[in-house]
Design a protein around this nucleic acid. Structure first.
Length: 273
DNA sequence: AGGGTGACCTGTCGGC
DNA sequence: TGCCGACAGGTCACCC
């Protein structure tokens, strides 16, 4: 239903960060197990305040008056925050009632997670966040460092982008889309990409992700934000999920290949090795 | 250490 | 209609 890349996570954050700030946790309810255990007794969270909501890669970080919660939406997760919510459903696996509303995670596939860490430097948090690359939507995403990092990787550029160790937030859809915009074949070794082409890719990543956030998380067929509003934006994908269809730029048929057990889409005419 | 594979879990869709 | 396989937006643990 819902599979979030960075823009969807950021849109989710924006939809409830201001409303939950300052809330006191009144109850915590767990459903079926998520990817990782919470890491603390749910009752121990009661009475703590939610100070603010940040994002790191595809993680939402809820800073509490003591410690923080790392929330990941996995492949199928979505979060709602509202004063009143219907009864818990089959796929609601985490709920936290606060003085300002109820935060609920719905995640059918349960690849998502809610993890407590005493601090961001705690080993638990570091295991999840420590290896992450730079944020693509901040000043830290600087071209020359990006280019240098690519030079050190022999792997196919698509998989390097997906890995998130150089730059975070480029998921399976945007990996294909940004490589199309940059005219780079997804199978090319990252180290082999010339400086001018790396510059095109750097610009494409910045532009595509920023635009997707501005549009409210356009990736998803069925994305709903934390207000519970269904995303009505359709991704105008150039290549993603368009196998066999004509390229929107040159009409050549879009190809689908598999890299690391994930689908990749590209135009063999517009994207050069 | 880098690079490749399997695993986690549920739902949907297309083909026969 | 039913069954079965392929596939789905993520990412960690593990192998060589």
């Amino acid at each position: 239903m819902t599979m979030p890349e960075l823009p969807e996570v950021e849109v989710t954050r924006l939809s409830f960060a201001d409303r939950i700030a300052g809330a006191t946790i009144a109850s915590v309810t767990m459903g079926k197990p998520l990817r990782w255990v919470l890491g603390c007794a749910p009752e121990s969270l009661l009475g703590r305040q939610v100070l603010q909501v940040r994002r790191r890669g595809k993680y939402l970080l809820l800073d509490l008056s003591h410690g923080l919660l790392l929330v990941h939406l996995g492949m199928s997760g979505s979060v709602v925050f509202a004063e009143h919510l219907p009864a818990l459903g089959k796929h609601d696996h985490f709920e936290m009632q606060t003085t300002l509303g109820t935060l609920r995670l719905n995640d059918p596939r349960r690849f998502g997670a809610v993890v407590y860490a005493p601090s961001e430097s705690d080993p638990i948090a570091q295991k999840l966040l420590g290896h992450l690359g730079v944020e693509p939507l901040g000043d830290a995403f600087e071209f020359s460092a990006f280019h240098v990092a690519l030079k050190a990787r022999q792997t196919a550029i698509k998989q390097v982008l997906l890995g998130g160790e150089i730059v975070v937030g480029v998921g399976n859809i945007y990996a294909s889309e940004t490589l199309f915009l940059a005219g780079i074949r997804p199978t090319v070794s990252a180290a082999k990409i010339s400086k001018p082409r790396a510059a095109l890719l750097h610009a494409a990543i910045t532009q595509v992700l920023a635009q997707a956030v501005a549009k409210g998380g356009s990736t998803l067929r069925d994305f709903s934000n934390a207000h519970g509003e269904q995303g009505h934006f359709q991704l105008d994908a150039m290549v993603y999920d368009r196998a066999g269809l004509p390229c929107r730029r040159c009409e050549a048929p879009i190809r689908r290949i598999v890299q690391g057990q994930r689908s990749t889409f590209y135009c063999a005419n517009c994207q050069k090795p």
